[in-house]
Design a protein around this nucleic acid. Structure first.
Lengths: 362, 362
DNA sequence: TAATTGTATTAACGCGCGTTAATAGTTGCT
DNA sequence: AGCAACTATTAACGCGCGTTAATACAATTA
């Protein structure tokens, strides 16, 4: 285990001072340095395999070159989230181009304040992106006053923090209107998460708005709360079915949860969309691969990540972004799960394309 | 923007020296400190909202308290990996209990050496876990000599690095044997990734071994390489079908890829498992929710993560682990996609349970 | 009282690097 | 030559904390 190579070693080998090394390697051109000297330094650095110590650099420059992605959810829910990789992919890509690092953190609801304080005050990171924030997050106020840039992935009306999100309300309204246009009048709703998560509330509001515009009365008995994972979707649909409520369609505010609902519907012997049409949300890659393919609202996960990062870098540079929040477009993607209206229990009327049905009509 | 709170501030407020503060807050009991003094310090720290600066701490103690998870794949592939969250969930959980941080990194194949050197020499992290290593990774040698603990998620025979993995070969053999036991003799194979990824090779070897034991000749024309994502599975199956080769079953070494294969099979008007039985690998949460439910080899993702972390902490402590590599058990979970043998093109013979079929026989 | 043993506390150095203010070296002009 | 105006380089300090070696103090013993 040889001794660590420091900038002093590079300086010695190159026959210059440590300061010169620093100037060369950090491209500081305020003090002009002779090209040949610079070359000598670079050569020495390469020759020795010199890599500046990250901690020392961070301490001296007050920049960790790390940004944090904080997820307000327990690991259990993280483990089964098919949407997360999209965010990560987008973020990792953007970050690397900036030669920064990504620190991943999670916070259990209730521990937010302490975690945020630790993260910002201890200066582990230069900036943070907060995934799936909750309306009741007691730590957000602290972040507003923290001396560190913050971007929310999700919109919190009462907060002054910058944010990136899709228009959940409008998107949900479009999705539900789609069902209404198909002739459905009794439409159930399963949320994507508990209501303190802003996206859940907003999507539920979109559902209500669509009903209202169509003159359909909102019936709380047709609404269930799910909780990110498939199992919760299964339970929610089961609960709806067992309640005896009549409905010909369901808006599920998360594809993952919707697949749980699929399972419950199948188990009950109900056809999709013949007996119950289903519209999901997120358009996870699998949506077009399950059977029947799932109508969904496409959410540009990678773009959300990239935009969040753009906003964050803007804040980290000290610039004031154009606007407090960025809203990205969504797109409803109609697929088989909401193809046409079917009456409950009706059989043999739903014409799927032959090649698709062949797989099951055996 | 108030000045940062340092340990000196705490010392001043408590009326002691900075050293005492450090001793108290780090529980150094080599020098005994009067309890009331300690209490005074703790109170002052809390009162001021003191959080030790991470960089300074790292620099002084030579410990970053961060571990790195390195993924040898481009962001595009990360974005569509449904298995990743399980690893992350497990890792995040374990790490938090140790109050460490997780730094996420990716490396494009070809850039490994440079990335590893930067990561270890610059000492961004105290230890690293390498996901999906490649047999042809030119950076592994460097890691063997690096002064930083490394654990591979995946087994590389020629490397002396510690590793955690499942027995891919045996698991694949079991999966394929399962198909053979069901009466299949013409079994295709789609790998989970390109062959330089060790798991791909090992699973393919398991496939070959099962065939061999059953006295079935290996036919390279029945093998296709996929590449992590769904699309590649779709393409691979399409290619198999178009090749005109006869087969009644397919072993797909990744559930994600298998779902792509599902799609291609459906599009070709073939029933699962009636015309082609399918066995996947990984047992992602969705496996039991797609239709038909997917027979798969359950890989304990979270356990892999936890065991990797355990091994890593062991190495970071400087202890010598019991063994160089940990092998975790897998379990074949038979589901509908491999229920019984069907002859190709045969229709109407495959009896699914009524309640499941009802959904599609409308 | 003086010497001895512990016990509680601190002064001071080092971690490796960024950066300012000062210095040595060079050229151009009168 | 003499002075100014740059240009190239460096000494030295600070970032905030961990830690060792030294010190002050109280308690015990001869």
């Amino acid at each position: 285990m040889s001794r660590r190579v420091t900038s002093q070693d590079v300086a010695d080998l190159a026959g210059v001072s440590r300061t010169t090394v620093s100037f060369v390697l950090n491209n500081v051109n305020r003090f002009s340095i002779r090209p040949e000297t610079a070359e000598k330094v670079r050569l020495a650095a390469q020759q020795l395999g010199y890599y500046p110590n990250a901690s020392a650099k961070a301490l001296a420059s007050n920049q960790t070159k790390n940004i944090g992605l904080i997820i307000t959810r327990a690991p259990h829910y993280i483990a089964s989230d098919p949407f997360l990789p999209q965010i990560l992919g987008g973020l990792l890509d953007a970050i690397k181009q900036n030669s920064q690092g990504l620190l991943l953190e999670w916070v259990e609801p209730g521990q937010q304040l302490q975690t945020y304080l630790e993260l910002t005050r201890a200066h582990h990171i230069d900036g943070m992106i907060l995934m799936t924030p909750r309306l009741d997050d007691p730590g957000l106020r602290a972040l507003e006053e923290a001396d560190i840039p913050v971007v929310l992935m999700g919109y919190i009306p009462w907060s002054s923090l910058h944010s990136v999100d899709v228009d959940n309300l409008a998107a949900a309204e479009t999705a539900v209107s789609h069902l209404i246009d198909l002739g459905h009048r009794s439409i159930a709703c399963i949320t994507n998460a508990a209501l303190p998560y802003t996206s859940a509330t907003q999507r539920l509001d979109g559902y209500r708005l669509a009903l209202q515009k169509a003159g359909i009365a909102f019936d709380p008995k047709l609404v269930r709360e799910a909780d990110f994972d498939i199992q919760s979707g299964y339970r929610a649909m089961k609960s709806l079915l067992e309640s005896g409520q009549e409905f010909t369609a369901v808006f599920v505010a998360s594809d993952n949860v919707a697949l749980g609902a699929y399972s419950a519907l199948r188990e009950a012997g109900l056809s999709i969309p013949g007996d119950v049409a289903v519209v999901g949300f997120d358009d996870i890659p699998l949506a077009s691969f399950v059977s029947p393919t799932l109508t969904s609202v496409a959410v540009p996960g990678q773009e959300i990540a990239v935009e969040s990062y753009k906003l964050l870098t803007c804040l980290m540079r000290g610039d004031l972004p154009e606007s407090r929040s960025v809203t990205l477009p969504t797109r409803l993607i109609p697929r088989e799960s909401s193809r046409e209206i079917g009456r409950r229990g009706k059989r043999g009327a739903d014409k799927k394309s032959a090649k698709l049905a062949s797989c099951f009509n055996d």
